[in-house]
Every structure is written in structure tokens, then in C-alpha cells.
Amino acid sequence: MPTTGVGRALKTKKLTPKFIRPYQIIRRVGPVAYQIALPPNLANLYDVFHVSQLRKYVADPSHIIAPNDIQLKENLTFEVPPISIADRTTKHLRGREIPLVKVIWNKMTGDATWELEENMRELYPDLLDTS
């Protein structure tokens, strides 16, 4: 997809023959126009381009993303195993004490939730015995 420097492109919405990188074509708008999926930093550019402003994509092995082997259930969901237990607390509710554990699901994204210790002990006994 062509553009001048990002700052100038955002101000003038005019493009020059410099190419940034490949973008996905969302749909064909007309016989010679295509709608392109632009990133948020180019959101105020019009996303439909004439075919003369586009280059043919040249395959690059580094652009291939290997899919993970995910086992889907019948309802098209999948189970993510917990990584570790980060914290423990006890919630007091109407005179009852409810033990909770903070479960880390993905270290890279920081996904964590508070779960009932009883449920986690039942589903993942090895996780609670080691921490």
C-alpha cells in the first residue's frame, strides 16, 4: 500500500509511490478499486484504493504463521490450561468464608482471573499442590 511519510499522509490524504507494507484486501469495491484493511494509525485515510496504487504481493516465508494444534470441542470452544497460581485470598460473604485463587492463564498477555479454590483444586489438583 503506497503512502508518503505517515505524518504527511495523515494530513493531506495524498499518496506517492512509496510502499509501506502489505495489507489485507477486504473486498473489491468496483472494477478497479479495492478496500484495504488499514491499521489504526492510518484510520483517517480513505480505505479504498485504485488498482494502480497497489502492488502485487510477493510471498515471503517469514509472513507465514504456523497454526497451533488446538483441539476444539463440539460447541467450537477450546480449553486453555492455567499456567500458575499468582495469589490467594478469602472473601467474606454473609458470614461465610470463600477461598479464592488468582489464576494466570497466559503469561504473555497477562490474562488472569479470580477463581474458586475448590473448583480449581477439582479441575487442576497438580496446580494447587505445587504452590
Rank of each mutant, 00 (worst) to 15 (best):
A9S: 14
A9R: 07
K13S: 05
K13Q: 07
K13T: 00
K14T: 14
K14Y: 03
P17C: 03
K18P: 00
K18N: 14
F19I: 11
F19L: 07
I20T: 11
I20K: 07
Q24L: 15
Q24Y: 08
I25A: 08
I26H: 06
V29Q: 08
G30A: 12
P31S: 10
V32W: 01
V32S: 09
Y34S: 00
I36Q: 02
A37E: 10
P39T: 03
P39H: 02
P40L: 06
N41I: 09
L42V: 02
H50D: 07
L54Q: 05
K56P: 02
V58Y: 02
P61M: 01
P61E: 04
H63L: 02
I64P: 00
I64Q: 07
I64D: 06
I65E: 07
I65H: 12
A66I: 13
N68W: 07
N68A: 13
I70V: 15
I70Q: 05
Q71K: 15
L72W: 15
L72D: 07
L72P: 09
K73R: 14
E74K: 12
L76R: 11
T77E: 12
E79T: 13
V80I: 15
I83S: 06
S84A: 15
A86M: 14
A86I: 10
R88H: 12
T89A: 15
T90D: 10
H92F: 12
L93G: 00
R94D: 09
R94Y: 08
R96I: 06
L100N: 03
V101L: 08
N106W: 01
N106V: 02
K107G: 07
M108S: 14
T109E: 08
G110F: 07
D111I: 13
A112G: 00
T113M: 07
L116V: 04
E118N: 12
N119S: 13
M120Y: 07
R121V: 13
R121T: 15
E122L: 14
Y124F: 14
P125M: 03
D126Y: 04
L127W: 05
D129F: 05
T130N: 15
T130L: 13
S131T: 13
